[in-house]
Write a protein that binds this DNA or RNA. Sequence first.
DNA 1: CTTGACTTGAGAATAATTTTCACCCAGATG
DNA 2: CATCTGGGTGAAAATTATTCTCAAGTCAAG
Lengths: 289, 289
Amino acid sequence: MAAGALGRIQTETPALPEALRRVGEAILADPAEAARSTIITLAERSGSSPATVTRFCRVFGFAGYAGLRVALATENGRAAQANWDAGVGHEIGPTDPLDAAIGVMAAADSRLIQETAAQLDAGTVAKVAEAVVAARRVLIFGVSTSGAVAVMMGGRLRRIRVPCWSHADAHEALADAALLGEGDVAIGISHQGRTREVLESLGEAGDRGALTVAVTSFARSPLAELSDLVLTTASRETTFRLGGLAAVHSQLFVLDTVYVAVAQRTYEQTNEAFELTIRALESHRVERS
Amino acid sequence: MAAGALGRIQTETPALPEALRRVGEAILADPAEAARSTIITLAERSGSSPATVTRFCRVFGFAGYAGLRVALATENGRAAQANWDAGVGHEIGPTDPLDAAIGVMAAADSRLIQETAAQLDAGTVAKVAEAVVAARRVLIFGVSTSGAVAVMMGGRLRRIRVPCWSHADAHEALADAALLGEGDVAIGISHQGRTREVLESLGEAGDRGALTVAVTSFARSPLAELSDLVLTTASRETTFRLGGLAAVHSQLFVLDTVYVAVAQRTYEQTNEAFELTIRALESHRVERS
DNA sequence: CTTGACTTGAGAATAATTTTCACCCAGATG
DNA sequence: CATCTGGGTGAAAATTATTCTCAAGTCAAG
């Protein structure tokens, strides 16, 4: 078993005879470098011979040098990953080197998605999906960034034949909301749950008898209170005011789950609709060069 | 740089010729196994020759097979540490319980973002950001889902005073592209990099002397070849055809990094612009209850 | 002193890896 | 239609890495 190879080397090395010990020390001094070296290089660096390095591998139960090498590299990756979460929560400042910033952002986003998933209520998602499948009309809206999310989700749902309209524009959303009725679904997206336009449109839809669904980060926001069902997104307002940026990932994730749930409930039809859509889009693609 | 080797293999493999592609597929099918195999074993498993495997290593910038092997092992350790294998790659079927599906999706998205980050070239991001900061005009476009991403990014950039237009509409994008010139920037988004409209618009922008930037999952796609700079997104086409869904996260992440890089380069102005924007948006919010 | 168990590295033997080269094939050209 | 070109490929040669064998050295115990 590869696990713990470095630890075992650390433990056993001091008890080894002269030449073997030097090999162990050379590896411990820089495992990553050792993984990259050939057996010859490593032998030279430890002041011994290739034969001794092979023996060293055998001592630790590897079939040969290749085995040791792979084990070292694996542990090296493991260690790198362990350091990963470290930087989360760190604010990104104007002078941070970009690669560090990229790492922090990735960690933050990744974590955000996990959090979103953790606190998402599958029951609510299922209810929303069932309502969407049964609805005569579905309306999705938001403004600004959330509007773009709404449009994106609308496009997806239309591709699997859900009768869906999506707006990033407040007036159009309001107009459409007024036309909804019993058995329809309205989904309003707002990170903070305080955007007036979204509140008005969702309120209007509710008044007309449609099922209202809020997608927001705040379960106690006006939007949430006004809605029949609430899908909460997670968002941490950290890292250079990136709360807004990250919120999009969270919103998309929540809507992805709704999409999948809808697709599951209309599997046959979904597959067929996919085929059609893909064929239609193909004609807009250029050939492989 | 060793990081992101698997991601890169994933991205580039489909564009490779026959025999090389088979090698890539064999590796992707079981990276851990590949790391343990000799070049000969791997050649046999992929139905090609050792020579081809060596060529494959060169394509991805490794000095030889040993380099690839170590990189694979490293990533393998990385993945193991993060417990990411939990369910990833599992297709979501119509009968899966929804909470399981949510878990799989979260793991997949999370991993996707990590992969995207790992294979993103900070230097390229910096170049794009610098060009955006210096540009007289910036144009961002895509169609369909990528179009929504473009619109979202455009909105963000405008909020920090970047003179930016964004389109999800092919004709408008083309019209605007024709008006660009030296010192302007055009960013085209297309998951597969084969969408004709995006190709045309970016080509037009390039002809007019603008810096052209591609955001695509395929580094060898027509879109990438045609562009001055390429920002590659990662995407695994797994889980219930969710490739397209997941691609959005990846695209957004890449553009987030550009946004942050731009913000870093115009810190004063960014902060000020933020204040103004937030105040403007406040008036559309309802008061805390 | 011997002896013998244990280490070690030189060099031979083997196996893996890389390079070279001739071939094939698809598409371009005359 | 014949010919050429150029990329892609695997067989085999060349190189290099790895493993094995063995003689020699060391050292503690008799």
